[in-house]
């Protein structure tokens, strides 16, 4: 785990841009006034050794706790919006995410099929993703800087640098200390990072997530970067990986790119959202069944589709 970064103004400017790119800055603007400011180090050279734990920095514990309470729902909303932006790639419908990607459809789609919750539940509850890979990814997201000089719109420039430092500190706590790893949040932040690489203007807009603001074509370009995987992305992420795992990273990103789309497709068309675990029955007709005409009268135990044997041959010789 890398040390707590030094909080100098230059660094914080770059960090602020990064937080904007992964969607955190925009999403938190609503609670911005509640963010207390951290005292900044005087110069980068003279900065004291970084504290070992993120939560021992210069905002009081009580203030940080209050902020965390405010931040958690905001970040979970950010993940939801981002992953909604993902699932509508595989089944656009009448929702605002499909509209935002430029492919509105009248009939139900991924959102109505519960695709967002499907993917969040899968990522957070069940993906047996080893900490050894997720920890460095988290570290990258919580320490990375953006000095590409993307100009932030004024709406994202309202936080004082001290507040940015606090926000950053809180993010670190949420990503590192929560009981279960919020893999959905990690994935969302990653998608947002790629989104702002594809289209820097996506840092602001109507929805809370940069990725969800992209057109379908731009989302595909973001996936191109993930799947490539893009050298800049690798460079950003692998600095934190222990040596034996460096090789695994590009493979992991390729795997992730595929898996996110495959899982979105599976979840957007299967019965997950309307399955009652207690009775093991459906509570309504799944969206995917309705769209595809599958099992018009529900589950059957047989079909009358036995035509016979090809050329009437029901057995063959050696």
């Amino acid at each position: 785990m890398p040390d707590q970064p030094v909080r100098t103004p230059d660094r914080l400017l770059a960090r602020r841009t990064f937080l904007a790119r992964i969607g955190v800055l925009g999403a938190t603007s609503a609670v911005a006034t509640a963010i207390p400011a951290t005292t900044l180090a005087r110069t980068s050279q003279a900065a004291p050794a970084a504290p070992a734990h993120p939560d021992t920095a210069s905002v009081t514990d009580a203030a940080l706790d209050r902020l965390l309470d405010l931040l958690r729902p905001v970040l979970s909303e950010l993940s939801r919006d981002t992953l909604s932006g993902l699932v509508v790639m595989t089944s656009p419908g009448p929702d605002r995410f499909s509209a935002a990607q430029g492919t509105p459809r009248p009939e139900p789609g991924a959102i109505e099929a519960g695709g967002t919750d499907f993917i969040i539940e899968a990522l957070d509850g069940f993906v047996p993703f080893p900490d050894q890979l997720s920890t460095p990814l988290l570290a990258a997201l919580t320490t990375a800087l953006d000095d590409t000089g993307i100009a932030l719109p004024t709406s994202l420039n309202t936080l004082l640098l001290g507040q940015v430092a606090t926000l950053d500190q809180a993010l670190l706590v949420i990503l590192r200390n929560d009981q279960t790893l919020p893999l959905s949040l990690v994935v969302a932040l990653l998608l947002n990072l790629l989104a702002t690489q594809v289209n820097p203007l996506s840092v602001t807009g109507v929805l809370s997530s940069p990725f969800a603001r992209l057109s379908l074509d731009e989302k595909c370009r973001a996936f191109e970067l993930l799947e490539g995987p893009d050298a800049d992305l690798i460079g950003l992420l692998d600095a934190n990986l222990p040596e034996p795992l460096r090789d695994s990273l590009s493979g992991l990103l390729r795997f992730l790119a595929g898996a996110l789309l495959e899982f979105s497709a599976f979840g957007s068309y299967n019965e997950w959202a309307v399955f009652d675990r207690q009775t093991r029955e459906l509570t309504a007709r799944p969206v995917g069944w309705e769209l595809s005409g599958y099992q018009p009268d529900g589950v059957v135990h047989g079909w009358d589709d036995f035509i016979g044997y090809y050329q009437d041959r029901s057995e063959v010789g050696a």
């Binding site: 595989t90 089944s91 074509d217 595909c220 370009r221 996936f223 191109e224 799947e227 490539g228 595929g258 789309l261 495959e262 899982f263 979105s264 497709a265 599976f266 979840g267 957007s268 068309y269 299967n270 019965e271 799944p286 995917g288 069944w289 769209l291 595809s292 599958y294």
Partner: peptide, 21 residues
């Protein structure tokens, strides 16, 4: 249906009409 769509997006050639990987 879900597996049908899973199979349709399981690709090493990017996204049709968008990128080729």
């Amino acid at each position: 249906p879900g597996l049908q769509q899973f199979a349709a997006v399981f690709s090493d050639s990017g996204i049709r009409g968008h990128h080729t990987n």
